[in-house]
């Protein structure tokens, strides 16, 4: 049996703004199994980051609030959990890394001290022992010359090396789940490949599950076991990666896959790309029914009348579309 490490059920995370209530995450259900890589894919503003940050309660409240749902971590709901309980889970059980590594690093402390910090806090290591572990972790994430570089400050590292430092901090206490929010989006393609290889290596070595948030279908295809597709604050489709690409069922997923130019597709050169007309809807007073209906070529009155729910269409494959 696969174990559901993280099981998000009907989560609603809303923001109170001057313009009205932003229903950023509005009934999202998804789960991450032990040891797997779940990719969460969708265009900007679809609610990926808010979903991820909700798990570790990294949402500013106010303006944000949980308007419903559950976030089950190994069976236990995190929404009612206290801050100190969340602090214990953060780092030791669930770690998170972000697109811009600099925001996660403190510019005035050496990277060694920053990698050592969770080890000292959670594993009661002495400073010396923790710094030695920090150098080991830096070696593990393939930062050259770690014994010397533990004493360097974040600004002395390149973007790719900083993301390695952030990964070292994240894996220091051996978490079971790593939430990686666009970890390579700010990096060049050759460095992106290095970082993704590193994450996959850490996953294989420690059996850690990864929730990989990305907007790039190529990154999804090459790294995910399963995929969740989000659109305008909702999950529209979920499936194992090969199934999703071979048999996308939601018109939005189909559109996404066909809209990307591919370097390997000879026939496609300078042929028209499939395009999804229009733009994403506002999340303040979002349209009734299916939120994709206004851009969907198959939409009928029924799509606007009632909101489609996720229903199974195959093994492990669910779609929120009435067609």
């Amino acid at each position: 049996m696969t174990e559901r490490l993280l099981d998000i059920r009907d989560l609603r995370t809303w923001f109170n703004t001057d313009d009205g209530m932003v229903r950023a995450v509005d009934g999202v259900s998804l789960h991450v199994n032990r040891g797997e890589t779940l990719a969460v894919v969708g265009e900007s503003g679809s609610g990926k980051t808010v979903t991820a940050r909700s798990v570790l309660k990294l949402i500013d409240m106010p303006p944000g609030r949980f308007a419903g749902g559950e976030i089950l971590w190994r069976g236990r709901d995190l929404i009612p959990a206290s801050n100190s309980e969340i602090d214990k889970i953060r780092a030791r059980e669930i770690a998170m890394i972000f697109q811009e590594p600099m925001t996660a690093l403190n510019p005035v402390y050496t990277v060694g001290d920053q990698i050592a910090e969770p080890l000292r806090a959670h594993e009661n290591l002495s400073r010396r022992a923790a710094l030695a572990r920090a150098a080991e972790l830096m070696r593990l994430v393939q930062i050259p010359d770690p014994e010397r570089r533990v004493r360097d400050y974040p600004h002395q590292f390149s973007g790719g090396m900083r993301q390695r430092v952030v990964i070292a901090i994240a894996i220091a206490c051996g978490p079971q789940l790593l939430i990686a929010d666009e970890p390579t989006t700010a990096l060049d393609v050759t460095i992106q490949a290095q970082i993704l290889d590193l994450l996959n290596d850490m996953k294989a070595r420690f059996g850690m599950a990864i929730m990989l948030i990305t907007h790039a279908m190529g990154v999804v295809a090459e790294n995910a076991d399963r995929v969740v597709v989000m659109y305008a604050g909702k999950v529209v489709e979920a499936a194992p990666v090969e199934e999703l690409f071979a048999n996308p069922r939601h018109p939005y997923t189909q559109g996404l896959i066909r809209a990307i130019p591919r370097v390997d597709a000879k026939a496609q050169h300078r042929t028209r790309l499939a395009q999804i007309p229009g733009t994403v809807p506002s999340l303040i007073n979002p349209p009734a029914g299916c939120r994709f209906a206004a851009r969907c070529t198959f939409a009928t009155d029924a799509c606007v009348a009632a909101e489609p729910v996720l229903k199974p269409v195959g093994p492990d494959h669910t779609v929120a579309c009435i067609l």
Binding site: A216, E222, F245, D264
Partner: peptide
Amino acid sequence: TVPIPDPKLKRKRLV
């Protein structure tokens, strides 16, 4: 190193 949106394609990457 360009990621290709095809999960069936298992490439030998030259990282």
